[in-house]
């Protein structure tokens, strides 16, 4: 197997995180694995490993992070942050890693499904309002029966101000950029790993006995 070349590692990523102001100093990581031990995603797909992701960032193995499929799996449950002995806010780090990956044209397929929510929220200042008339009628009927407005109301003023925020915070431009950036095809090459027991029917206690 090809050895990883330390000369390929770059501090660009770690520095970018440090200046982002989003994630705390991740060099505090002591690689204890508590995060991975409580991670619901790692429990299902062990190739996603928060501790290892932090190590990749710290070592500067940035190729692998940017192209990684794994970084898109995090549920953002923050179990890791709640238990971390080094006070690393991993979910915020993950948020930043994903932005970083996107800035290299990767991961678009994991963001695309939400762009329609944003487009709609920009119009209504509310997220998730369904488009299908039948579903809307259902909601209207239920809300009315509870003595609530048929649909959640945001004033015209509120909507206008919300839309203005898209302009002044550069979100419109950001979205345009995002849509114009072509997706970089990811050439996935997993490292050979450990063979895992796949059969769920053998529970731990049965194996023990």
């Amino acid at each position: 197997m090809k050895r990883e070349q330390a000369s390929n590692w770059s501090l660009e990523f770690e520095n970018a995180i440090a200046t982002s102001g989003l994630a705390d100093d991740i060099s505090r990581c002591i690689s204890c694995g508590k995060c991975t031990g409580v991670c619901p995603v790692a429990a299902i797909s062990p190739s996603y490993n928060p501790r290892q992701i932090i190590r990749e960032v710290l070592l500067g193995n940035y190729e692998r992070i940017v192209k990684s499929e794994e970084i898109w799996r995090c549920f953002w449950c923050a179990n890791c942050a709640a238990t971390c002995p080094s006070e690393i806010k991993y979910p915020l780090l993950m948020l930043y890693i994903r932005y970083f990956s996107m800035s290299h044209g990767a991961g678009k397929k994991h963001v695309d499904p939400f762009i329609r929510f944003v487009t709609k929220a920009r119009k209504e200042a509310v997220t998730f309002q369904p488009g299908k008339p039948a579903r809307l009628d259902e909601i209207r009927a239920l809300r009315s029966s509870l003595g609530l407005a048929p649909l959640r109301i945001v004033s015209d003023k509120g909507i206008k101000e919300y839309q203005k925020l898209f302009e002044i915070t550069g979100t419109d431009e950001w979205l345009k950029n995002y849509q114009e950036t072509p997706e970089v095809p990811i050439d996935l090459s997993y490292l050979e790993g450990r063979i895992l027991v796949q059969d769920d029917s053998i529970s731990g206690s049965e194996r023990e006995a």
Binding site: C32, G33, K34, T36, A42, Q52, R194, L196
Partner: peptide, 12 residues
């Protein structure tokens, strides 16, 4: 629940 950090595997 923990991770065997030498193997990189969550264990139970």
């Amino acid at each position: 629940r923990a991770e065997d950090t030498l193997m990189g595997v969550p264990i139970e």
